[in-house]
């Protein structure tokens, strides 16, 4: 599936991605009965828990459960149904559409050679129980989920941010978090190292990758017009290739002479 082609001639000037909430069309869902092993597993789950929806997509079973059952369902999957790996766990931001997070647990059974996904919805301020005493791999994944989405996990042994700094504000993977960061993010390093009063001295971030200022010799010199820090920009092009060393040479240091260099015909 490809997105429609859009003219990107002056891509530096305007954002061409105006469909931030574009949702890919769903691939077809099969009934669980079409797979013997999954049908049995679902039977076993249904006998104990409330299953809201279940289907097979791309050969993987997806079941929707009640978020309060998450520990029991995972324990059941591990102990009774031989799903011995929790390979991934995270959240999906549906706040704009439904005011909810979708939490998913991606499971793998090495003996059955099957993958399945357990999903549930929680409200924005709701917390979910930790599963990291059942599956150790949930430890960092739950911390990441908290860091990136702000989903609070109850009874986690070390509920702290994992990727962003501890004093960070905001949860970057939420859809309403700006890609270039909010004000806190944009001034984070300046505020932290120098203090807020240095904001004026250092100035805002330059986020325009096409920005060129030939008069500015404090940041980048114009190529082949290099001058020293803060000096007037030069009009004459400099020939730097001859200039890496002073004319008279440097004591004890050989100077590379282009006319004396040899080009090998073949490798030695």
């Amino acid at each position: 599936m490809m997105r429609r082609y859009q003219e990107k001639g002056d891509v530096q000037k305007k954002a061409y991605y105006n469909d931030r909430f574009w949702v890919a069309p769903q691939i077809p869902k099969d009934p669980v009965e079409s797979d013997e092993i999954f049908a049995k597993d679902l039977e076993s789950l249904k006998s104990k828990f409330e299953i809201k929806e279940a289907y097979i997509q791309r050969g993987q079973m997806v079941v929707y459960i009640d978020p309060k059952d998450n520990r029991d369902v995972l324990k059941h999957l591990k102990e009774e149904l031989a799903y011995n790996f929790l390979s991934e766990l995270s959240a999906i931001d549906w706040l704009a559409q439904k005011g909810e997070f979708e939490i998913f647990y991606q499971m793998l059974s090495t003996s059955k050679r099957k993958r399945m996904r357990v999903k549930c919805f929680i409200k924005e301020k709701e917390a979910i129980e930790s599963v990291c005493d059942i599956y150790k791999s949930a430890d960092w994944a739950e911390r990441e989920m908290y860091d990136m989405f702000g989903v609070i996990v109850n009874n986690h042994p070390y509920m702290k941010r994992i990727l962003m700094p501890d004093d960070w504000q905001g949860h970057p993977l939420r859809k309403d978090y700006p890609l270039h960061g909010d004000e806190f993010a944009q001034w984070y390093e300046v505020d932290k190292i120098f203090g807020k009063e240095y904001r004026d001295i250092i100035g805002p971030e330059n986020r325009d990758s096409a920005y060129v200022n030939e008069r500015d010799t404090k940041h980048f010199a114009r190529i082949r017009h290099e001058v020293r820090f803060g000096e007037e920009p030069s009009k004459e092009p400099t020939d730097l290739m001859k200039e890496y060393q002073e004319e008279g040479g440097v004591f004890l240091i050989k100077k590379f002479k282009k006319d004396k260099s040899i080009t090998l015909k073949e490798r030695k």
């Binding site: 270039h180 909010d182 971030e205 986020r207 940041h219």
Partner: peptide
């Protein structure tokens, strides 16, 4: 300049620091 990482998590040039 921060290069291709024009994001919230990258310092946009070490000369800011």
């Amino acid at each position: 300049t921060g290069g291709m990482f024009n994001t919230y998590a990258t310092v946009q040039g070490v000369d800011r620091v």
